[in-house]
Design a binder for these strands. Structure first.
Length: 424
RNA sequence: GGAGGGAUGGCCGAGUGGACGAAGGCGGCUGUCUUGAAAACAGCUGUGGGUGUUAAAGCCCACCGGGGGUUCGAAUCCCUCUCCCUCCGCCA
């Protein structure tokens, strides 16, 4: 949510940001118009209320029955007028709120111009792509051959874009989850286990609603929303709270499954486990003071990169361009790992600074030490990392000529002695 | 799912139609006293919005779980929803 103050004082800031995102700027004037109407109305309503409060008090104190009756009659007529204006105001406020909630975050100056993901900027590339003296297989061949990936039964249970992990495959994913969580908790993140179904207001707070409802699963009977990322519950952990400055920054990590309809990308990338309706992810989330969010962003990005380094996966870091930048983000870095079998860079992490955008929606504030006024915190989120794509890279990059796959050493503590996955 | 009881400020807890943004206590902050601390005493101590200002003060409005209603006037009466507690049922 953008601060309404920006629309009053510097609406060009919003217009420029929208233009950079290649979006229509006309809603800016609608907001300004509605805001002016609202404030004019509010002042009239509050004036009448003040008058009413004063008169009611006088009635209570008055001893003269005639005077009382006269004043009560006056207040009855005032009440009618007040009621009309209040109704008008009650219609106007949600209208303004609804409109304001559709504005994406202001784009940071450093975000490169671009229409879509093809114009993202590669900031750095780390590690060497593995070399093979044979033709490396993509995971959709490798997985079934190893007996750890079963597409047919996934489809039988749930349809396209679902799969089953078998035996050591399931264990590998579990090992990756544990490895990532332990890495993050070792670097100052507190682990949280959260609900995977949440209320509408929780999905709204992090910015997925109201605009992106069609990418979410929703239970109509009880009005639950299935989380598309742990960012959603982690944002609302401190919803409606006023935090102490001394407690900041607060850093969380959480493992959750993620549920997405993927309507937008119907038909795209249906092969393999790269894009499914359900996938697992370890997420990082930070609440901090505004002046610290830049440093916390770099910290979080380093924490995501560390996972790639420890797994020995070649990766690159992209600065997302304006056209690819998410709704809540001011700026975002994506991390992509190289997968040798399918020959692709796979996005495994997205680290974003949302500044006070989510904090406003979720009403998360802090009180500076010794200060009276509260301020909104800044929040950051980042994947650390998304499981299926890490699985793809681990399998494809560590395959050998005989079809076996060598498990990275850092995962051995969780693999129950298995160091190589042998083909069936 | 059934029956009953609850929800008040950071916490505890009073308040059944006007003097209540809300007694009292605890906690916190400031001051006096003290070499310092403790104790004692005094004062202050919620959030959001509007207006105002260089900034502030001030003034006004709203908020006693959420929404709606009755009334000149609601923490207080009525309806409804949510959540919590107790008992029964069911269950990993």
């Amino acid at each position: 949510m953008l601060d309404i103050q920006i629309f009053r004082e510097n609406p060009d800031l919003v217009r420029q940001s929208l233009q950079r995102r290649r979006q229509d700027i006309s809603p800016v004037d609608q907001v300004i118009d509605l805001d002016q109407k609202r404030r004019a109305l509010l002042q009239r309503v509050e004036g009448l209320r003040a008058e009413k409060n004063q008169a009611s008090k006088a009635i209570g104190q008055s001893q003269d029955p005639g005077e009382r009756q006269e004043k009560i009659a006056d207040m009855k007529t005032l009440g009618v007028e007040l009621e009309e204006l209040e109704t008008e105001l009650k219609d106007l406020e949600p209208e303004l709120e609804a409109l304001l909630s559709t504005f994406p975050n202001l784009v940071d100056d450093r975000v490169p111009e671009g229409a879509d993901e093809s114009e993202n900027q590669v900031m750095k590339t780390v590690g060497e792509k593995p070399e093979f003296d044979f033709q490396p297989q993509p995971h959709w061949d490798l997985g079934p051959a190893l007996g750890i990936l079963d597409f047919e039964r996934g489809v039988k249970l749930s349809g396209t874009r679902f799969y089953i992990l078998n035996g050591i495959g399931a264990r590998l994913q579990r090992a990756l989850v544990s490895f990532m969580l332990d890495s993050h908790t070792g670097h100052g993140y507190e682990e949280r286990y959260t609900p995977f179904m949440v209320k509408e207001e929780v999905v709204y707070a992090s910015g997925q609603l109201p605009k992106f409802a069609d990418n979410l699963y929703h239970d109509h009977e009880d009005d639950f929303w299935w989380v598309p990322t742990a960012e959603v519950p982690l944002t609302s952990l401190h919803k409606d709270e006023i935090l102490n400055e001394e407690d900041l920054p607060i850093s969380y990590t959480a493992y959750t499954p993620c549920f997405r309809r993927e309507k937008m990308s119907a038909g795209r990338e249906v092969r393999g486990i790269k894009r499914g309706h359900q996938f697992d992810k370890v997420e990082m989330y930070i609440y901090c003071r505004p002046e610290d969010s830049e440093a916390q962003f770099l910290r979080m990005q380093a924490d995501a990169e560390r996972i790639c380094l420890l797994l020995d996966l070649p990766y690159r870091v992209n600065n997302l361009c304006t056209g690819d930048l998410g709704f809540a983000a001011a700026y975002t870095s994506d991390i992509e790992v190289w997968a040798a079998g399918c020959g692709e860079w796979l996005e495994v992490s997205s680290v974003s600074n949302t500044r006070d955008f989510q904090a406003r929606r979720a009403a998360i504030r802090y009180r500076p030490d010794g200060g009276k006024k509260t301020h909104f915190v800044h929040t950051l989120n980042g994947s650390g990392l998304a499981l299926p794509r890490v699985m793809i890279a681990v399998l494809e990059n560590n395959q050998q000529k005989d079809g076996s796959v060598v498990i990275p050493e850092v995962l051995h503590p969780w693999m129950g002695g298995v160091e190589v996955i042998e083909p069936l």
